Simulated scan of single mutants.
Amino acid sequence: MARCDRCGEEEGMPYQCRLCGGTFCSEHRLPENHDCPGLEGWNDPNGVFDSGFDDSVSSSSSKSSVLGLDTGPGGVLAYFRGNATYILLGLMWLMFLVQYAVAPYVLGIEQGTRAWLDLFTLNTSHPLYVWTWVTSVFAHGGLTHIVFNSIVLYFFGPVVERRIGSKKFVALFLVSGALAGLAQVGAALAVSAPAAVLGASGAIAALMGVLTVLNPNLRILLYFVIPMPLWVATLLFAGYSVLMSGVGGIGAGGVAQLAHLAGLALGLLYGVKLKRDGERAPQELRFGGGGGGGLGGRRRR
């Protein structure tokens, strides 16, 4: 048995969409019946409508075979369609390698120096260094930090990506992550306090917010053990961030508490927009993680 990604009903003989990879019941098996993001590629006759009788299409297909890539409908870029979550995960770990191996041992940029901070963190010293709006989302403050964020993104990301499509998913991840960091740094500047933030937690909080609106009763197994509906987990997450901010400030415990709240708020707002379409999410997710705190003076998101 499997559940339909569109309506949530159990289906004994589920259908898997070849364009988006989702699982659907007989009623929603057609791409147009589940708002498949792959429909965006239907204007490419050399991809989706390939009949196999056109010589030019056959030539193109043979070239793809030589490369050893299953490009699918729409050309080479279609290889990445529906896999943006894993690409973002890969970029996070690649950035981690650059932070702690390439920068100090190859480029001579030691961790914690001004050059290192200006490359990998969004900070109050240089908030208009635009590249840090992106690099700070992928950079992390240590192994525990990136492992925890990777676990949550691995489980939440594909669900949201299937619903809104890869392009919008990447845009949501980058924009919410950058705005969450800017909110933290902006608040620090307002009170004349130094701050440097890094991490994908703000973006991941946005994904959590989207799912909470789409299906507040989504059952999750926190740490793979503790069952609870998603709305409870979200409420606990938000309450903890608010409490810590009230007790120790917006960067309490070395964690960018305000960035978490900003990312969550952005996700909730976007989820409200999606809710108008009447979409539902799967009924159960499992994830776990651990570790908090900061690294030096940097706030981890």
Rank of each mutant, 00 (worst) to 15 (best):
A2G: 03
A2M: 14
C4Q: 09
D5R: 05
R6K: 13
C7I: 05
G8W: 07
E9N: 14
E11Y: 04
G12P: 03
Y15F: 14
Q16M: 13
C20W: 06
G21L: 10
G21S: 13
F24Q: 03
F24L: 07
S26L: 11
H28F: 09
L30I: 02
N33H: 13
H34P: 11
H34L: 11
D35R: 14
C36T: 03
G47S: 12
F53L: 15
D54F: 12
S58D: 14
S61G: 02
S61Y: 07
S62V: 11
S64Q: 14
S65L: 13
G68K: 15
L69R: 11
P73Q: 02
V76C: 02
V76R: 01
L77H: 03
N83M: 07
T85W: 00
T85F: 00
Y86K: 05
Y86Q: 08
Y86R: 10
G90H: 08
W93D: 00
M95I: 06
V98D: 07
V98N: 08
V98P: 02
Q99A: 05
Q99P: 04
A101R: 14
A101F: 15
V102L: 14
Y105S: 06
V106R: 02
G108L: 14
R114Y: 09
A115K: 15
L122N: 07
N123H: 08
H126R: 06
L128Q: 07
V134S: 06
V137P: 01
A139Q: 04
H140K: 00
G142L: 05
L143V: 15
T144W: 03
H145Y: 03
N149V: 01
S150C: 05
I151Q: 06
Y154M: 13
F155K: 02
G165V: 03
S166P: 01
K167A: 14
K168I: 06
F169I: 06
A171E: 08
L174K: 04
V175W: 06
A178I: 01
G181W: 05
G181N: 12
L182Q: 06
A183T: 14
V185Q: 07
V185C: 09
V191Y: 12
V191S: 11
G199M: 04
A200P: 09
S201Y: 01
M208H: 01
V210R: 00
N217R: 15
L218K: 04
L218R: 02
L222T: 00
Y223E: 09
M228S: 10
M228Y: 03
P229W: 03
V232Q: 04
A233F: 12
L235D: 02
L235I: 09
L236R: 05
L236A: 15
A238W: 05
A238I: 07
G239L: 10
L243R: 11
I250H: 08
A252F: 12
A256E: 01
A256Q: 05
Q257I: 01
L261Q: 00
A262D: 05
L264I: 04
A265G: 11
L268G: 00
L269V: 13
R276V: 13
G278R: 08
E279S: 08
E279R: 10
A281N: 03
P282K: 07
E284G: 01
E284R: 13
R286C: 03
G289H: 10
G290A: 12
G291H: 08
G292R: 07
G296A: 09
G297T: 10
R298T: 12
R299L: 15
R300F: 04
R300T: 10
